[in-house]
Amino acid sequence: MRSRDIGFRLSTGAFAFVLASIVVAIGFELSRQSMLSIQKFGFDFWRTSTWDPVAGQFGALPFIWGTLYSSILALLIATPVAIGIAVFISELCPRILRTPLVFLTELLAAIPSIVYGLWGIFVLVPAVRSLEIALPDSLRALPLFSGPPLGVGMLSAALILAVMVVPFTSTVAREVLRTVPLAQREAAYALGATQFEAIRAAIFYARTGIVGAVMLGFGRALGETMAVTMVIGNNPQVSASLFAPQYTMAAVIANEFTEAADELYLAALVEIGLVLFIITLVVNGLSRGLIWTMAGRKSGRAAA
């Protein structure tokens, strides 16, 4: 390599270094700001469910529960739909429809969270409430549907998260399916496979990448803030009921960060942010790893 190229490498590399160091800086700053809470509560912070600013007792279990529960529910709803769309667009769709469909899913992904939240408050929540009221009493007796029909609560949050995750997962899944070699499908057809069987083989071939896409969607759902805080009811409790108002980690930061009246309270909120950061780091790392392994088989670079 020529010496001038080294200069080029160093100068662009410096910017790349800035990018990488931001991630480190975020981790460092969040740890620093949450030290007070980490030292005071230790591991109990994650096991206890008392969130009591008066007594200075902070336990984050309800927020972790709410975050995981809402995200997993959203994934259960979103994954089949997202994979269906990915398959439809990449395998089945007439060419003429492809571009508009891709555009529409991209638009769905691009609508700001706050707009979904606004729509959630005024359209989705009242609809969910009537649905909850219409549910027969025999079902209402189940723990899954217990509690008063408020509209705001876990169900609304999961639904709105699902809507937001679908385009995200389907886009990545589509990219992954595109990396499946054409020959693979042709071979299936040549053996007399039906469309379903050929696609099933393609999906099987792309399975790691698709799991990665789903996890990427999961990462999105975990950190989603505005739309969720506007519909989930913001009540820290560990409940299996879909009707119960609950709380998520991102939502509690958005709601209480400016009003945390003492250092410990603020540190507890930052610690929630720190853990959210670490969780998304792990989930994203895993999913990118899966997608890269998959995509690497074909082109040696990321599909997402």
């Binding site: 969130w51 009591d52 600013p53 007594a55 705001v152 805080t229 009003e259």
Partner: peptide, 15 residues
């Protein structure tokens, strides 16, 4: 106790 936010023993929360 008394504070701007307290640990409620019962109920549902509205913002």
């Amino acid at each position: 106790g008394v504070n701007t936010s307290v640990n409620w023993p019962a109920g549902v929360g509205g913002k």
